[in-house]
């Protein structure tokens, strides 16, 4: 790396040309990959989401914010097929998506993490992240049974990718530790690793930094930005920490009581009166 070129990159534009000069492709925000149209979701009498529409563009970091119970997690659950909305459509890669099972949606390249960690407690860090590659493993029962040929080759090949993710997330030391024994912050990191292992086109993160201290948050921010920049992964994340949201996201959608009350760049959202009243106002009281 040429230190001077990096030091000289004062503006975004300079930075971009420096990146091109070094053969790194600059961040590129492309067309819409996923669009939710007029989604309404009810649980009996509870309206979790009411007529919400927004889109997610290729390569961007899209934040979803809102007070507790606003319907943010429910929205992610709709996107990955866990909840089926009563009304509305989801368009993925320009096509209207049929109602699918969550595992079918995973096959299409949507991965996620959960607000309450959902790791496989009885398995090691390594095995947890290996499960992220299950959709790509194809060797049949026969080869699996004798553990030769394709089965072993496949295992080694995926293990190599998983080791790269382990290096990337700096969790080499806990590779063989059962995840149940890990502290909270590391569990969140392993869960991110499992989602990354699937090499998703769209990554959904539900409060990836909740309950973390400042240092852990900084690490997590760095990982999210790196994933987005290095692999060009599109990311939709829910986060309560306004500083983080304003820092890392390209566009923000604001939900309140299941309705969309704002959508735009962090600056636009910050100056939106309805958002200030309904959300920022409340939390700053």
């Amino acid at each position: 790396m040429n230190i001077h070129a990096q030091a000289a990159a004062e503006t975004d534009k300079d930075y971009e040309s420096a990146e091109i000069a070094h053969g790194i492709s600059p961040r590129h925000i492309g067309e819409v990959v996923l669009e939710v149209r007029n989604i309404s979701l009810r649980f009996g009498g509870v309206k979790a989401i009411t007529d919400v529409s927004f889109d997610i563009r290729d390569g961007e970091i899209r934040a979803i914010i809102g007070p507790n119970g606003a319907g943010k997690s429910s929205m992610l659950n709709v996107i990955n097929g866990f909840y089926h909305p009563q009304d509305g459509e989801i368009w993925f890669h320009g096509k209207k998506r049929k109602p699918l099972k969550p595992h079918q949606i995973a096959q299409q390249g949507i991965a996620r993490t959960f607000q309450n960690i959902a790791l496989f407690k009885g398995m090691t860090t390594l095995d947890n992240i290996m499960t992220g590659r299950l959709t790509m493993m194809k060797s049949n029962v026969f080869w699996q049974a004798i553990w030769q040929g394709p089965a072993q080759a496949e295992e080694v090949r995926h293990r190599e990718t998983v080791e790269k993710i382990i290096d990337f997330l700096e969790i080499q030391a806990i590779r063989k530790t059962p995840v149940g024994k890990l502290p909270y912050g590391l569990q969140k990191r392993v869960e991110l690793g499992r989602a990354l292992a699937a090499e998703p086109k769209l990554l959904l993160l539900d409060e990836p930094m909740a309950g973390m201290n400042v240092e852990e948050k900084e690490d997590m921010c760095r990982f999210i930005l790196d994933v987005n920049e290095e692999f060009g992964t599109t990311i939709a994340l829910i986060e309560h920490d306004m500083g983080v949201v304003m820092d890392i996201s390209d566009r923000v959608v604001v939900l309140d009581h299941g309705e969309k009350i704002g959508d735009g760049t962090p600056d636009e959202v910050r100056s939106n009166q309805e958002v200030i009243d309904a959300y920022l106002g409340v939390s700053h009281d």
Partner: peptide, 12 residues
């Protein structure tokens, strides 16, 4: 075994 919901979401 460990978490059927998460298993489904990673494509099992």
């Amino acid at each position: 075994r460990d978490m059927d919901i998460a298993a489904e979401i990673i494509g099992v």
